[in-house]
Design a binder for these strands. Structure first.
Lengths: 250, 250
DNA sequence: CGTTTGGTTGAAATGTGTCAAACTTTGTGG
DNA sequence: CCACAAAGTTTGACACATTTCAACCAAACG
């Protein structure tokens, strides 16, 4: 599929989450050439060392950014869900310093850097919004550093679950604190810097504490407040649009 | 001190590291109003929850970004040295999600967001460069997540030392793999997610391995290649300007 | 010179990793 | 639709990295 398709609408949605678009801006976005592609699970989209000429907006599915150490260990540095723009940074950093890959089957929209750069020059507000998108991703990284550095297993996993739940909600993919969650324990291990075995035991502890239910690819927070406490979770770092902020209180 | 002063030159330097400036751009930078301020050690510059109307460029000294968990533990998410722009993100994220504070005495240049935004609208290349600056900071966060998640004490501290040394070199603050390093062991603990005691023991191990000398506020890599190996350090994530890349091989 | 701050040490407690095996679920091809 | 393979989860026992606590020492500092 190519250009001007209905598939471009998610792009408009992305911007409208934070910004009231003018007609011109909306039109510019609608006419941006996009290439929508379906991808298999567990597949590289961009690799460390690549010099991409385009960036991908996730439309459906779960993806992640990973880094591999010289010793061959792998760290997932963040998960991406629908609406996320995982490798937007490559717009201004020519060489990828990490891998961007699918976790589940995904649908992504590829946008050429040349088109995006032209858009940015012509529409400074859209440029600022894209910049903002990368800054929020940076804020998430800061929180992950803190999560890995300061919290032990139980809180750490709880925090990860809180973050994912809130982001899924904001993307319209969760309700009643329940969402699709197709992440294996070994992926959770790679994301939390723990061994698979210990993730397993921690999940049992979270279940025994009555905080979560996690099975067959779905996560449900049985006791949201309890989970938030366990994870010491404060969603401020997600810099959510104002309207969404209240939803946490529910 | 206010505006147009010789103090503004570091600003030009910052941009010229990555970008060949035009005369217009250089002039625009030179005329940006800056307020240069000297700050005491161990002092907040901006706090979590603040909504700053300006950002600070570090001219001298060591600073850091920190997050405090609900349990009162503190994580240093990154260190800042001369030439760094620690809270540039506040240009587009209205509320700070972390603290930015001095470690040593510092000299910083404050720049108003309104001025920076005007600059960005008029000079897209400068905007892109500022954006790039925040993206590189993001890349550093990714690496820290990996460092905390996948490396044990010995490698983790080695990696931190490698990063600092390379960044100090690039800022012109290190030569012969030796630089000022006024970080206490308890700061290193907060940055590495380890206890002070274990930092102490790890430093002894690094010394016994003949990799470093660290005393009276100075760090020297006695065996740079060994340190790089121990830390599995690959500086690609720092996205250094091309000319500097070769320096690592020395 | 005393006081503070930062560094070092030892011993014990504990969180987490490792290994290896068994079990369960999911997916697939016959 | 079953049977089988593959993938993911769970378990136990043990090893080990790291934390904690408490004390002591050294260096920096006014």
């Amino acid at each position: 599929m190519h250009g001007h398709s209905p598939q471009a609408y998610p792009l408009v949605t992305h911007f409208q989450r934070h910004l009231a678009l003018t007609e011109h801006e909306r039109a510019a976005l609608a006419f941006l050439p996009v290439r929508v592609v379906g991808l298999k699970a567990d597949q590289d989209i961009v690799r460390e060392g690549d010099k991409p000429s385009r960036s991908a907006l996730v439309l459906e599915g779960f993806a992640c950014t990973t880094k591999i150490t010289a010793n061959g260990k792998r760290q997932i540095t963040t998960f991406h869900i629908a609406g996320d723009w995982p490798d937007l940074e490559s717009l201004h950093l020519d060489t990828m310093d990490s891998d961007f890959r699918t976790v589940t089957e995904c649908v992504v929209a590829f946008l050429d850097h040349t088109d995006l750069k032209a858009l940015c020059e012509q529409y400074p507000r859209l440029a600022a919004q894209l910049w903002r998108t990368t800054l929020i991703q940076g804020a998430i990284y800061r929180e992950w550093v803190t999560n890995l550095g300061q919290r032990e297993a139980f809180s750490r996993i709880a925090h990860l679950f809180c973050e994912m739940m809130v982001r899924m909600e904001d993307a319209g993919l969760a309700k009643d604190k329940e969402c699709s969650f197709p992440l294996t324990q070994s992926l959770l291990a790679e994301a939390s810097g723990m061994s698979t075995v210990h993730v397993n035991r921690t999940l049992q502890a979270l279940r025994e504490a009555g905080l979560i239910e996690l099975k067959s690819g779905r996560l449900k927070a049985l006791d949201w407040e309890g989970l938030v406490n366990a994870g010491e979770f404060d969603p401020a770092y997600l810099h959510r649009p104002r309207e969404r902020m209240s939803q946490l209180q529910q």
